[in-house]
Design a protein around this nucleic acid. Structure first.
Lengths: 205, 205
DNA sequence: TAGATTGTTAATCGATTAACAATC
DNA sequence: TAGATTGTTAATCGATTAACAATC
C-alpha cells in the first residue's frame, strides 16, 4: 500500500508539524526554521529536515521555510488539502463530544453523520446532526462515499461495527473502543484510549 | 527520571499488553502465550517476550503465561495496582465526556474533580461531579495530593492551565488541547488529538 | 518422554544524529 | 560579502527479529 518507501513513523510526524505551522500562522508568523520548529515540538532540527526531505525540497538555505508554503505542501502530502467526511458510530458521551467538536475546522476533516443502535437516541439531535439508525449505516456510508469513520461504541460492539464500515467502503478507522480491531491490510486503524496514555505515564511517577 | 534503562517504547506497550490480558480474563481464559498475545495485537511474539524480560521472568517454558499473574505483574510495574485520582480541567464536551467515561474502572484511574472557568458551568453537575471554579484548582489539587490531570480546555488556555497544575504538584498530564505543552523534564505529557490520528491515515488513502 | 514455549543472545534492520558542502 | 540554514551523507544509536538452549 505504501506509495513509496516512506516510513510510517515519518508520516506520523507530519500532522504534528502541520499543526505547529498552523499555530505559527495564527500568530502571524511567515517564516520559520527547522531549529525553531524543533524547539517547539521537542524534536531535533535534523530530524525535521530529514523527514521533509523524504517528500521534496521545501526550504531555502540561509532563510528557512515559508510557513504558508510548507503547510500547504504538507497538506497535499497528507491529502488534507481537501475535506474528508467522517461517519461517527456511537452517540454516547464520546461520540456526541466528537460530533460537536470544533477542532476539525480547517484541518481537512468534517463529521458528516452519526449512528447509534439505541431507539431512544435515533432521531435525536446531537449538535447539528440527527442520530441515524445503525441499520442504515452500510447504505448511508456507501452512498456518501465515506472512507473515514470513528468508532465510539462499547468494546463489545466495536468489531462488528468495524466489519460493517469496511464492507461499506471505509478505509480508515479511528477507534475509541478499548479493543484491538482485526481488519484487512488495506484498512488503516488508529486507537485512542485515554487509559492507555495515562498508564504509560504512571510508570514514571 | 528513568528508574532503570527501560526504553520508553517498551513501557508504552505494557498498557496494551495489560488491556489484552484483561480482555482474555473476561473471556474466562487462564493461560496464554507470547504467540497468541502477539497475534491479537499485531506484534511479534519475540518482541513481547523481549519486552517482558526487561522486568523479570513471568512465564513457564512449554506452558506460557498465567493471565492473572502476568496482568498483576504488569499492573505493579505500571503502578496501576492502585487507583490514581485525576483532575479534569475543562467542562466542555470533551471534559464532560471524560468525567462520565466508564472505561476507567478497574484500570487504575478515577476522575476525582472537574474544573472550569465559565460561571455558567461552575456549580453545575457533570456526571457525579460538581464543576469547581478554576480559581480553586491549585489549592484543591494540592490538598488532594493529585499527581495526574487531563486538560480539555481550548488551546489558548492549555499552557496556563498546565503551569497551574504543575505548580500544584501534578506530574502527569494528558492533553486534549491541540497544542504542544512546554513542561519541566520531570513532568510527563501525553497528547490526544483526533485530527492528528486522522491525518496520519489519510496519507494512505 | 515428546512437544511446546520461554528467556536470551547475536544478527539484522531501521531510525536518529552529527557534520558539512551548497547556497540563499 | 558574511551569516544562516538547508538538504544530504555517513556514522551512530537503538529497536526488532531470528534462532536456540533451557526446561516445564
Amino acid at each position: 500500500m505504501a506509495e513509496k518507501g516512506i516510513p510510517d513513523i515519518v508520516v506520523g510526524r507530519l500532522p504534528i508539524y502541520l499543526r505547529a505551522l498552523q499555530r505559527m500562522r495564527a500568530e502571524n508568523r511567515h517564516i520559520t526554521s527547522s531549529q525553531e520548529l524543533g524547539e517547539r515540538l521537542g524534536i531535533s532540527a535534523a530530524q525535521i529536515r530529514k523527514d521533509l526531505s523524504q517528500f521534496g525540497e521545501f526550504g531555502k538555505q540561509g532563510t528557512g521555510y515559508s510557513i504558508d508554503f510548507l503547510a500547504e505542501q504538507i497538506r497535499q502530502i497528507l491529502k488534507v488539502d481537501r475535506v474528508w467526511d467522517i461517519a461517527v458510530v456511537g452517540a454516547g458521551d464520546i461520540g456526541s463530544a466528537v460530533a460537536r467538536y470544533q477542532g476539525f475546522a480547517n484541518r481537512g476533516m468534517r463529521v458528516a453523520m452519526i449512528f447509534d443502535n439505541d431507539p431512544g437516541k435515533i432521531g435525536q439531535k446531537v449538535g447539528s446532526f440527527t442520530v441515524q439508525d445503525i441499520e442504515q449505516i452500510e447504505s448511508a456510508v456507501r452512498a456518501a462515499g465515506i472512507q473515514v469513520a470513528m468508532i465510539a461504541t462499547p468494546g463489545a460492539q466495536a468489531q462488528a461495527v468495524a466489519d460493517l464500515l469496511i464492507s461499506a467502503g471505509v478505509k480508515a478507522i479511528l477507534n475509541y473502543a478499548p479493543i484491538s480491531l482485526s481488519v484487512p491490510e488495506n484498512v488503516h486503524v488508529q486507537y485512542i484510549d485515554p487509559v492507555i496514555h495515562l498508564q504509560r505515564m504512571t510508570y514514571y511517577l
